[in-house]
Design a protein around this nucleic acid. Structure first.
Lengths: 210, 210
DNA sequence: ATAAAAATACCACGTTTAGAGTATTGTATA
DNA sequence: TATACAATACTCTAAACGTGGTATTTTTAT
Protein backbone atom coordinates (compact mmCIF):
# COMPACT_ATOMS: atom_id res chain seq x y z
CA UNK A 1 0.00 0.00 0.00
CA UNK A 2 1.00 3.56 -0.61
CA UNK A 3 2.52 5.56 2.23
CA UNK A 4 2.17 9.33 2.43
CA UNK A 5 4.94 11.07 4.33
CA UNK A 6 5.42 14.56 5.68
CA UNK A 7 8.83 15.87 6.67
CA UNK A 8 9.23 18.60 9.28
CA UNK A 9 12.79 19.87 9.04
CA UNK A 10 14.27 23.32 8.68
CA UNK A 11 17.40 22.23 6.86
CA UNK A 12 16.21 22.63 3.32
CA UNK A 13 18.92 20.53 1.72
CA UNK A 14 18.40 17.68 4.14
CA UNK A 15 14.64 17.73 3.71
CA UNK A 16 14.63 17.90 -0.08
CA UNK A 17 17.41 15.36 -0.28
CA UNK A 18 15.47 13.02 1.93
CA UNK A 19 12.34 13.52 -0.13
CA UNK A 20 14.23 12.63 -3.27
CA UNK A 21 15.69 9.56 -1.59
CA UNK A 22 12.37 8.37 -0.18
CA UNK A 23 10.53 8.75 -3.43
CA UNK A 24 12.91 6.31 -5.04
CA UNK A 25 11.14 3.74 -2.90
CA UNK A 26 8.12 2.16 -4.50
CA UNK A 27 4.82 3.34 -3.03
CA UNK A 28 6.30 6.18 -1.01
CA UNK A 29 5.32 9.78 -1.59
CA UNK A 30 6.42 12.84 0.35
CA UNK A 31 3.44 15.14 0.21
CA UNK A 32 4.90 18.08 2.08
CA UNK A 33 8.01 19.57 3.65
CA UNK A 34 7.33 21.82 6.62
CA UNK A 35 10.24 24.04 7.65
CA UNK A 36 8.92 25.23 11.01
CA UNK A 37 6.37 24.60 13.72
CA UNK A 38 3.63 26.85 12.44
CA UNK A 39 0.16 25.46 11.71
CA UNK A 40 1.35 21.90 11.77
CA UNK A 41 -2.06 20.52 12.71
CA UNK A 42 -3.69 22.29 9.79
CA UNK A 43 -1.04 21.13 7.36
CA UNK A 44 -1.27 17.52 8.53
CA UNK A 45 -5.05 17.56 8.29
CA UNK A 46 -4.91 18.55 4.65
CA UNK A 47 -2.66 15.67 3.61
CA UNK A 48 -3.64 12.83 5.94
CA UNK A 49 -0.13 11.38 5.96
CA UNK A 50 0.73 7.94 7.30
CA UNK A 51 4.15 8.88 8.60
CA UNK A 52 5.63 12.07 9.99
CA UNK A 53 9.40 12.53 10.04
CA UNK A 54 10.05 15.13 12.69
CA UNK A 55 13.25 17.01 13.42
CA UNK A 56 13.74 18.32 16.95
CA UNK A 57 15.90 21.33 16.31
CA UNK A 58 13.48 23.74 14.71
CA UNK A 59 13.42 27.51 14.85
CA UNK A 60 11.19 28.96 17.56
CA UNK A 61 8.98 25.97 18.25
CA UNK A 62 10.91 22.78 18.91
CA UNK A 63 10.08 19.26 17.87
CA UNK A 64 9.14 18.15 21.37
CA UNK A 65 6.48 20.82 21.56
CA UNK A 66 5.13 19.85 18.17
CA UNK A 67 5.08 16.20 19.16
CA UNK A 68 3.21 16.99 22.34
CA UNK A 69 0.72 19.07 20.43
CA UNK A 70 -0.10 16.71 17.57
CA UNK A 71 0.10 13.29 19.26
CA UNK A 72 -3.39 13.49 20.83
CA UNK A 73 -4.90 14.85 17.63
CA UNK A 74 -3.49 12.18 15.30
CA UNK A 75 -3.44 8.96 17.32
CA UNK A 76 -2.84 6.74 14.29
CA UNK A 77 -0.07 8.76 12.70
CA UNK A 78 3.37 7.15 12.84
CA UNK A 79 5.65 9.83 14.21
CA UNK A 80 9.37 9.28 13.80
CA UNK A 81 11.88 11.64 15.33
CA UNK A 82 14.76 12.27 12.97
CA UNK A 83 17.50 14.29 14.58
CA UNK A 84 21.24 14.77 14.79
CA UNK A 85 21.27 14.05 18.52
CA UNK A 86 22.10 10.48 19.48
CA UNK A 87 20.94 11.11 22.98
CA UNK A 88 19.28 8.13 24.61
CA UNK A 89 17.63 10.29 27.19
CA UNK A 90 16.16 12.56 24.59
CA UNK A 91 14.95 9.47 22.75
CA UNK A 92 13.21 8.19 25.85
CA UNK A 93 11.62 11.57 26.33
CA UNK A 94 10.13 11.48 22.85
CA UNK A 95 8.91 7.97 23.54
CA UNK A 96 7.13 9.28 26.58
CA UNK A 97 5.53 11.97 24.47
CA UNK A 98 4.22 9.34 22.09
CA UNK A 99 6.74 9.11 19.27
CA UNK A 100 6.92 5.80 17.37
CA UNK A 101 10.59 5.97 16.46
CA UNK A 102 13.76 7.83 17.22
CA UNK A 103 16.36 7.88 14.46
CA UNK A 104 19.68 9.55 14.10
CA UNK A 105 20.31 11.48 10.88
CA UNK A 106 23.09 8.99 10.45
CA UNK A 107 20.53 6.22 10.02
CA UNK A 108 20.36 4.15 6.85
CA UNK A 109 17.56 3.71 4.37
CA UNK A 110 16.71 0.26 5.69
CA UNK A 111 15.80 1.70 9.05
CA UNK A 112 13.65 4.35 7.40
CA UNK A 113 11.85 1.72 5.36
CA UNK A 114 11.19 -0.24 8.51
CA UNK A 115 9.74 2.84 10.16
CA UNK A 116 7.61 3.70 7.16
CA UNK A 117 6.15 0.28 6.42
CA UNK A 118 6.36 -1.90 9.50
CA UNK A 119 5.62 0.17 12.58
CA UNK A 120 2.29 -0.10 14.36
CA UNK A 121 0.95 2.75 16.40
CA UNK A 122 1.89 1.12 19.68
CA UNK A 123 5.50 0.48 18.62
CA UNK A 124 8.61 2.37 19.53
CA UNK A 125 11.68 1.81 17.39
CA UNK A 126 15.04 3.05 18.63
CA UNK A 127 17.55 3.69 15.83
CA UNK A 128 20.76 1.69 15.59
CA UNK A 129 22.95 4.67 16.31
CA UNK A 130 21.37 5.25 19.70
CA UNK A 131 22.60 3.28 22.65
CA UNK A 132 19.99 2.28 25.17
CA UNK A 133 20.82 3.64 28.56
CA UNK A 134 21.46 1.17 31.33
CA UNK A 135 19.30 2.80 33.93
CA UNK A 136 16.51 3.17 31.40
CA UNK A 137 13.22 4.14 32.97
CA UNK A 138 14.90 5.76 35.90
CA UNK A 139 16.88 8.02 33.66
CA UNK A 140 13.86 8.93 31.60
CA UNK A 141 11.82 10.23 34.44
CA UNK A 142 14.84 11.91 35.84
CA UNK A 143 15.81 13.93 32.78
CA UNK A 144 12.25 14.42 31.75
CA UNK A 145 11.25 15.87 35.06
CA UNK A 146 14.50 17.80 35.21
CA UNK A 147 13.78 19.80 32.11
CA UNK A 148 10.19 20.35 33.03
CA UNK A 149 11.18 21.52 36.46
CA UNK A 150 13.07 24.44 35.05
CA UNK A 151 11.01 27.60 35.11
CA UNK A 152 10.93 30.14 32.30
CA UNK A 153 13.06 32.52 34.30
CA UNK A 154 15.55 29.79 35.02
CA UNK A 155 15.84 28.86 31.37
CA UNK A 156 16.28 32.51 30.53
CA UNK A 157 19.10 32.76 33.00
CA UNK A 158 20.70 29.59 31.70
CA UNK A 159 20.80 31.18 28.26
CA UNK A 160 22.41 34.32 29.61
CA UNK A 161 25.00 32.34 31.52
CA UNK A 162 25.73 30.39 28.38
CA UNK A 163 26.25 33.64 26.51
CA UNK A 164 29.14 34.29 28.82
CA UNK A 165 27.53 36.68 31.25
CA UNK A 166 28.39 36.85 34.92
CA UNK A 167 25.77 37.03 37.64
CA UNK A 168 26.09 40.79 37.89
CA UNK A 169 25.84 41.18 34.10
CA UNK A 170 22.65 39.18 34.18
CA UNK A 171 21.28 41.15 37.11
CA UNK A 172 21.82 44.35 35.17
CA UNK A 173 20.21 43.16 31.98
CA UNK A 174 17.17 41.74 33.77
CA UNK A 175 16.87 44.67 36.19
CA UNK A 176 16.99 42.44 39.23
CA UNK A 177 19.41 42.12 42.12
CA UNK A 178 22.59 40.06 41.73
CA UNK A 179 21.42 38.17 44.80
CA UNK A 180 18.35 37.04 42.92
CA UNK A 181 20.44 35.82 40.04
CA UNK A 182 22.50 33.88 42.54
CA UNK A 183 19.36 32.30 43.92
CA UNK A 184 18.18 31.27 40.47
CA UNK A 185 21.61 29.90 39.78
CA UNK A 186 21.48 27.93 42.98
CA UNK A 187 18.07 26.49 42.14
CA UNK A 188 19.12 25.60 38.61
CA UNK A 189 22.17 23.77 39.90
CA UNK A 190 20.11 21.96 42.47
CA UNK A 191 17.49 20.87 39.96
CA UNK A 192 20.02 19.69 37.41
CA UNK A 193 22.22 18.07 40.05
CA UNK A 194 25.32 19.89 38.86
CA UNK A 195 27.72 22.32 40.48
CA UNK A 196 29.71 24.19 37.85
CA UNK A 197 28.92 26.64 35.06
CA UNK A 198 30.75 24.45 32.62
CA UNK A 199 28.43 21.54 33.40
CA UNK A 200 25.48 23.83 33.01
CA UNK A 201 26.49 24.95 29.56
CA UNK A 202 27.26 21.42 28.49
CA UNK A 203 23.81 20.45 29.70
CA UNK A 204 22.24 23.37 27.90
CA UNK A 205 23.89 22.53 24.60
CA UNK A 206 23.13 18.85 24.85
CA UNK A 207 19.53 19.36 25.80
CA UNK A 208 18.78 21.93 23.20
CA UNK A 209 18.25 24.74 25.63
CA UNK A 210 20.41 27.08 23.59
CA UNK B 1 29.49 19.13 -19.52
CA UNK B 2 29.23 16.38 -16.95
CA UNK B 3 30.20 17.15 -13.37
CA UNK B 4 31.50 14.48 -11.04
CA UNK B 5 30.88 15.13 -7.36
CA UNK B 6 32.13 13.62 -4.15
CA UNK B 7 30.37 14.17 -0.84
CA UNK B 8 32.23 13.97 2.43
CA UNK B 9 29.65 13.81 5.20
CA UNK B 10 29.14 11.46 8.10
CA UNK B 11 25.39 11.86 8.28
CA UNK B 12 24.37 8.99 6.08
CA UNK B 13 20.82 10.14 5.46
CA UNK B 14 21.91 13.62 4.55
CA UNK B 15 24.60 12.37 2.20
CA UNK B 16 22.48 9.80 0.40
CA UNK B 17 19.56 12.19 0.25
CA UNK B 18 21.77 14.84 -1.26
CA UNK B 19 23.15 12.35 -3.78
CA UNK B 20 19.64 11.45 -4.83
CA UNK B 21 18.72 15.11 -5.13
CA UNK B 22 21.82 16.06 -7.10
CA UNK B 23 21.48 13.22 -9.55
CA UNK B 24 18.10 14.54 -10.57
CA UNK B 25 20.08 17.34 -12.16
CA UNK B 26 21.11 16.69 -15.73
CA UNK B 27 24.81 15.95 -16.11
CA UNK B 28 25.52 15.57 -12.42
CA UNK B 29 26.84 12.36 -10.94
CA UNK B 30 27.88 11.67 -7.36
CA UNK B 31 30.67 9.18 -7.66
CA UNK B 32 31.32 8.64 -3.98
CA UNK B 33 30.18 9.36 -0.44
CA UNK B 34 32.99 9.47 2.11
CA UNK B 35 31.86 9.25 5.74
CA UNK B 36 35.12 10.24 7.44
CA UNK B 37 38.50 11.80 6.93
CA UNK B 38 40.45 8.67 6.14
CA UNK B 39 42.41 8.34 2.89
CA UNK B 40 40.62 11.25 1.30
CA UNK B 41 43.48 11.99 -1.08
CA UNK B 42 43.52 8.42 -2.33
CA UNK B 43 39.76 8.35 -2.78
CA UNK B 44 39.71 11.64 -4.66
CA UNK B 45 42.53 10.51 -6.92
CA UNK B 46 40.57 7.48 -8.02
CA UNK B 47 37.50 9.44 -9.12
CA UNK B 48 38.92 12.74 -10.35
CA UNK B 49 35.84 14.70 -9.26
CA UNK B 50 35.09 18.26 -10.33
CA UNK B 51 33.40 19.27 -7.10
CA UNK B 52 33.85 18.26 -3.50
CA UNK B 53 31.05 18.90 -0.99
CA UNK B 54 32.72 18.89 2.38
CA UNK B 55 31.12 18.82 5.80
CA UNK B 56 33.09 20.26 8.70
CA UNK B 57 31.77 18.21 11.56
CA UNK B 58 33.34 14.85 10.93
CA UNK B 59 34.37 12.20 13.40
CA UNK B 60 38.04 12.33 14.43
CA UNK B 61 39.43 14.40 11.56
CA UNK B 62 37.52 17.62 10.93
CA UNK B 63 36.70 19.28 7.64
CA UNK B 64 39.20 22.09 8.14
CA UNK B 65 42.03 19.63 8.45
CA UNK B 66 40.87 17.80 5.34
CA UNK B 67 40.58 21.05 3.44
CA UNK B 68 44.07 22.07 4.46
CA UNK B 69 45.42 18.71 3.42
CA UNK B 70 43.84 18.37 0.01
CA UNK B 71 43.81 21.96 -1.27
CA UNK B 72 47.47 21.95 -2.34
CA UNK B 73 47.13 18.53 -3.94
CA UNK B 74 44.04 19.31 -6.01
CA UNK B 75 44.37 22.94 -7.07
CA UNK B 76 41.62 22.74 -9.66
CA UNK B 77 39.03 20.96 -7.57
CA UNK B 78 36.04 23.08 -6.56
CA UNK B 79 35.71 22.60 -2.82
CA UNK B 80 32.44 23.65 -1.25
CA UNK B 81 31.96 23.57 2.49
CA UNK B 82 28.50 22.32 3.38
CA UNK B 83 27.80 22.60 7.06
CA UNK B 84 25.15 23.32 9.63
CA UNK B 85 27.10 26.25 11.03
CA UNK B 86 26.13 29.67 9.70
CA UNK B 87 29.20 31.19 11.17
CA UNK B 88 30.71 33.97 9.10
CA UNK B 89 34.03 33.66 10.81
CA UNK B 90 34.21 29.99 10.15
CA UNK B 91 33.33 30.73 6.53
CA UNK B 92 36.17 33.19 6.25
CA UNK B 93 38.49 30.68 7.77
CA UNK B 94 37.62 28.12 5.12
CA UNK B 95 38.11 30.78 2.47
CA UNK B 96 41.59 31.33 3.81
CA UNK B 97 42.26 27.64 3.58
CA UNK B 98 41.26 27.67 -0.07
CA UNK B 99 37.61 26.66 -0.15
CA UNK B 100 35.55 27.85 -3.13
CA UNK B 101 32.22 28.08 -1.37
CA UNK B 102 30.64 28.00 2.05
CA UNK B 103 27.03 26.84 2.20
CA UNK B 104 24.67 26.24 5.01
CA UNK B 105 22.79 22.94 5.01
CA UNK B 106 19.75 25.14 4.80
CA UNK B 107 20.83 26.23 1.30
CA UNK B 108 18.62 25.64 -1.72
CA UNK B 109 19.26 23.66 -4.85
CA UNK B 110 19.85 26.79 -6.93
CA UNK B 111 22.85 27.66 -4.82
CA UNK B 112 24.21 24.16 -5.17
CA UNK B 113 23.79 24.28 -8.94
CA UNK B 114 25.63 27.56 -9.00
CA UNK B 115 28.46 26.05 -7.01
CA UNK B 116 28.61 22.95 -9.18
CA UNK B 117 28.48 24.57 -12.60
CA UNK B 118 29.57 28.18 -12.37
CA UNK B 119 32.43 28.48 -9.91
CA UNK B 120 35.98 29.01 -11.09
CA UNK B 121 38.92 27.92 -9.01
CA UNK B 122 39.67 31.46 -7.88
CA UNK B 123 36.09 32.15 -6.77
CA UNK B 124 34.65 32.16 -3.31
CA UNK B 125 30.88 31.96 -2.96
CA UNK B 126 29.29 32.71 0.39
CA UNK B 127 25.88 31.07 0.84
CA UNK B 128 22.75 33.16 1.30
CA UNK B 129 22.19 32.02 4.83
CA UNK B 130 25.53 33.39 6.00
CA UNK B 131 25.82 37.05 6.89
CA UNK B 132 29.04 38.74 5.92
CA UNK B 133 30.76 40.14 8.96
CA UNK B 134 31.32 43.87 9.07
CA UNK B 135 34.93 43.80 10.09
CA UNK B 136 35.67 41.19 7.49
CA UNK B 137 39.38 40.72 6.89
CA UNK B 138 40.24 41.83 10.36
CA UNK B 139 38.03 39.20 11.85
CA UNK B 140 39.39 36.51 9.60
CA UNK B 141 42.97 36.92 10.63
CA UNK B 142 41.92 37.27 14.18
CA UNK B 143 39.90 34.07 14.48
CA UNK B 144 42.16 32.19 12.15
CA UNK B 145 45.24 32.98 14.10
CA UNK B 146 43.35 32.43 17.33
CA UNK B 147 42.56 28.82 16.64
CA UNK B 148 45.96 28.06 15.25
CA UNK B 149 47.58 29.63 18.26
CA UNK B 150 46.04 27.07 20.56
CA UNK B 151 48.46 24.28 21.36
CA UNK B 152 47.48 20.63 21.58
CA UNK B 153 47.65 20.72 25.33
CA UNK B 154 45.52 23.84 25.44
CA UNK B 155 42.84 22.26 23.26
CA UNK B 156 42.95 19.18 25.45
CA UNK B 157 42.37 21.33 28.50
CA UNK B 158 39.55 23.21 26.80
CA UNK B 159 37.81 19.90 26.22
CA UNK B 160 38.22 18.91 29.85
CA UNK B 161 36.92 22.24 31.06
CA UNK B 162 33.94 21.85 28.74
CA UNK B 163 33.28 18.44 30.24
CA UNK B 164 32.66 20.19 33.51
CA UNK B 165 35.96 19.59 35.22
CA UNK B 166 37.58 22.05 37.59
CA UNK B 167 41.24 22.95 37.46
CA UNK B 168 42.10 20.47 40.18
CA UNK B 169 40.07 17.72 38.47
CA UNK B 170 42.03 18.35 35.29
CA UNK B 171 45.31 18.44 37.16
CA UNK B 172 44.54 15.03 38.60
CA UNK B 173 43.53 13.43 35.36
CA UNK B 174 46.55 14.78 33.48
CA UNK B 175 48.97 14.13 36.32
CA UNK B 176 50.17 17.72 36.43
CA UNK B 177 49.99 20.44 39.05
CA UNK B 178 46.83 22.53 39.43
CA UNK B 179 49.08 25.53 39.00
CA UNK B 180 49.99 24.34 35.54
CA UNK B 181 46.37 23.94 34.62
CA UNK B 182 45.83 27.49 35.81
CA UNK B 183 48.64 28.68 33.60
CA UNK B 184 47.20 26.90 30.57
CA UNK B 185 43.81 28.36 31.42
CA UNK B 186 45.33 31.81 31.59
CA UNK B 187 47.04 31.40 28.25
CA UNK B 188 43.88 30.09 26.61
CA UNK B 189 41.87 33.03 27.90
CA UNK B 190 44.54 35.44 26.75
CA UNK B 191 44.72 33.97 23.26
CA UNK B 192 40.96 33.86 22.81
CA UNK B 193 40.47 37.28 24.36
CA UNK B 194 37.86 36.01 26.82
CA UNK B 195 37.62 35.93 30.59
CA UNK B 196 35.05 33.39 31.72
CA UNK B 197 34.57 29.63 31.46
CA UNK B 198 31.16 30.15 29.97
CA UNK B 199 32.65 32.15 27.11
CA UNK B 200 35.24 29.47 26.62
CA UNK B 201 32.67 26.72 26.26
CA UNK B 202 30.53 28.81 23.97
CA UNK B 203 33.64 29.40 21.87
CA UNK B 204 34.49 25.73 21.90
CA UNK B 205 31.04 24.67 20.77
CA UNK B 206 30.82 27.31 18.08
CA UNK B 207 34.24 26.61 16.70
CA UNK B 208 33.88 22.90 16.66
CA UNK B 209 36.47 22.26 19.28
CA UNK B 210 34.18 19.83 21.08
C1' DA C 1 -10.33 32.75 47.68
C1' DT C 2 -6.63 30.21 48.73
C1' DA C 3 -2.81 27.26 48.18
C1' DA C 4 1.15 26.34 45.43
C1' DA C 5 4.73 27.83 42.57
C1' DA C 6 7.80 31.36 40.84
C1' DA C 7 10.43 35.34 41.37
C1' DT C 8 12.41 38.33 44.24
C1' DA C 9 16.20 39.42 47.93
C1' DC C 10 19.29 39.04 51.76
C1' DC C 11 23.35 37.00 54.99
C1' DA C 12 27.45 34.30 55.75
C1' DC C 13 31.34 31.40 54.54
C1' DG C 14 34.63 28.80 52.09
C1' DT C 15 36.30 27.59 47.36
C1' DT C 16 37.50 28.50 42.83
C1' DT C 17 38.74 31.61 39.30
C1' DA C 18 41.01 35.24 36.78
C1' DG C 19 44.90 38.28 36.41
C1' DA C 20 49.56 39.61 37.14
C1' DG C 21 53.93 38.23 37.66
C1' DT C 22 58.32 34.95 37.18
C1' DA C 23 60.91 30.81 36.06
C1' DT C 24 62.60 26.09 34.67
C1' DT C 25 62.79 22.21 31.51
C1' DG C 26 62.27 19.83 27.23
C1' DT C 27 61.75 19.83 22.17
C1' DA C 28 61.79 21.39 17.65
C1' DT C 29 63.85 23.60 13.81
C1' DA C 30 66.21 27.15 11.35
C1' DT D 1 73.79 25.55 18.30
C1' DA D 2 70.99 29.19 19.21
C1' DT D 3 66.24 30.54 19.48
C1' DA D 4 61.55 29.88 19.81
C1' DC D 5 57.79 27.47 21.55
C1' DA D 6 55.46 24.26 24.60
C1' DA D 7 54.75 22.45 28.96
C1' DT D 8 55.67 22.63 33.48
C1' DA D 9 55.19 25.16 38.29
C1' DC D 10 55.16 28.73 41.69
C1' DT D 11 53.31 33.32 44.41
C1' DC D 12 49.85 36.65 45.46
C1' DT D 13 45.39 39.21 45.24
C1' DA D 14 40.77 40.39 44.23
C1' DA D 15 36.64 39.03 42.30
C1' DA D 16 33.30 35.68 41.26
C1' DC D 17 31.17 31.50 42.38
C1' DG D 18 28.96 27.65 45.08
C1' DT D 19 26.39 26.29 49.26
C1' DG D 20 23.75 26.79 53.29
C1' DG D 21 20.21 29.32 55.14
C1' DT D 22 15.72 32.47 55.47
C1' DA D 23 12.02 35.47 53.83
C1' DT D 24 8.86 38.46 51.07
C1' DT D 25 6.08 39.46 47.06
C1' DT D 26 3.92 38.27 42.80
C1' DT D 27 1.77 35.00 39.65
C1' DT D 28 -0.78 30.96 38.50
C1' DA D 29 -4.00 27.49 39.05
C1' DT D 30 -7.66 25.20 41.60
Amino acid sequence: MQRKIIIIDDQNLFATGLKSLLEEIHNVIVTKIIPDGNDVVFKLNADEPHVLLLDLNLPHKNGLEILEEIRPIFPNLIIAILTMYSDENLAMMTKKLGANAYLNKDADLKELKHVIFDLKKEDFYLGNGIKTPINFDLLIDDKFSQINQLTTREKEIIRLIAEGKSSSDIAESLFISPATVQTHRKNIFYKLKINKVSELIKYAYQNNLI
